[in-house]
């Protein structure tokens, strides 16, 4: 059976050739194969660093300090630019807020602060309810819920002293944000401020506002930020102004510096949402900065 033998020989040769060729192709494909078998579509990944800091400018961003991380925040606003050379364009005056924030886990954070304005203490709870993610069942936006309480400890003049409850103000925010690209993030902030006590009958106890904010990175460590709070129509909107702020985020290692210009003097919601009086385009602009420093108190693991 010579024909069968030669066929076998040919087949054997063919098989060897095929194996060699295939092993070469296979060799090049090993990485591709590996990548298809470990494909990212199987892994849920949370979007991180939508904003650099826990504040956009005056108000909160969706970010919280990570688990076990403590942030020390120094926020500072000088006087208005249009106060003239005598006040050195506002630099002679300053209001300050010192704050501490701590991440109990990657979603829940608590914080306290003290503003020099009206000698106000504040505390807040912040919870990342939804986190923007990719992968299976992707989430298009991040939603962080914020509840804050502020208490003014000013000595009231004239007497008689008001009740303690009248010193309290509460604010509630739902922060909705989307990181559209590594450079651009946008945030919306429906806001309710409840004041237990207001001076005039005309003033509202409940003030509603909608905020919008954005961050556009210019370089890896420098970003342009903007923040605007629109007061919904009402007496507060008639008597006060919407808060506007423009600034820069500068990152250097463990610090984030935020430099900005705003028509609001206060650095907590109860001040900048319902009590902004400055006219930005008339030069009532407060120059200010926020500095935050992170300390890791507990390891992430």
């Amino acid at each position: 059976m010579p024909s069968l033998l030669s066929f076998r020989r040919a087949a054997g040769f063919l098989a060897t050739a095929c194996t060699l060729a295939a092993s070469h192709v296979q060799a090049q494909d090993l990485l591709n194969q590996l990548e298809t078998q470990t494909t990212d579509s199987l892994r849920r990944e949370y979007v991180t660093a939508t904003f650099k800091g826990t504040r956009v400018i005056n108000g909160h961003s969706i970010e919280t300090p990570g688990k076990g991380s403590m942030l020390f925040l120094i926020s500072h606003r000088f006087g208005t630019l249009n106060s003239g050379a005598y006040e050195f364009f506002g630099l002679d005056q300053a209001t300050i807020r010192l704050g501490l924030e701590y991440g109990l886990n990657d979603q829940l954070a608590v914080g306290i602060g003290r503003s020099s304005l009206e000698k106000t203490y504040d505390g807040f709870v912040k919870y990342k309810a939804l986190r923007q993610s990719s992968g299976p069942r992707p989430m298009p936006v991040s939603v962080t819920l914020l509840a804050t309480t502020a208490v003014s400890t000013l000595k009231f003049q004239p007497e008689p002293e008001r009740s303690t409850t009248s010193r309290f103000t509460y604010s509630y925010q739902a922060l909705l944000a989307r990181k559209f690209s590594s450079n651009l993030s946008v945030q919306l902030m429906p806001t309710l401020i409840h004041r237990n006590y207001v001076d005039l009958r005309r003033d509202e106890n409940n003030v509603y506002a909608i905020g919008a904010a954005g961050r556009q990175k210019l370089t890896k460590r420098l970003a342009l930020t903007a923040e605007y709070y629109y007061l919904l129509p009402g007496n507060t909107a008639d008597d006060y102004r919407n808060s506007l702020a423009l600034g820069f985020d500068i990152e250097t290692g463990g610090h984030v510096f935020q430099l900005h210009f705003t028509n609001s003097q206060g650095m907590i919601e109860k001040f900048f949402v319902p009590q902004t009086t400055g006219n930005f385009f008339d030069g009532d602009i407060y120059f200010g900065f926020n500095i935050s420093r992170a300390f890791q108190l507990r390891s992430q693991e």
Binding site: A49, G66, G68, R221, Q296, Q300
Partner: peptide, 15 residues
């Protein structure tokens, strides 16, 4: 990559 400090992890990924 998991880092002991969350800020380190952010810097690693971001910067």
């Amino acid at each position: 990559f998991k880092f002991p400090k969350s800020l380190m992890q952010e810097h690693f990924n971001e910067n």
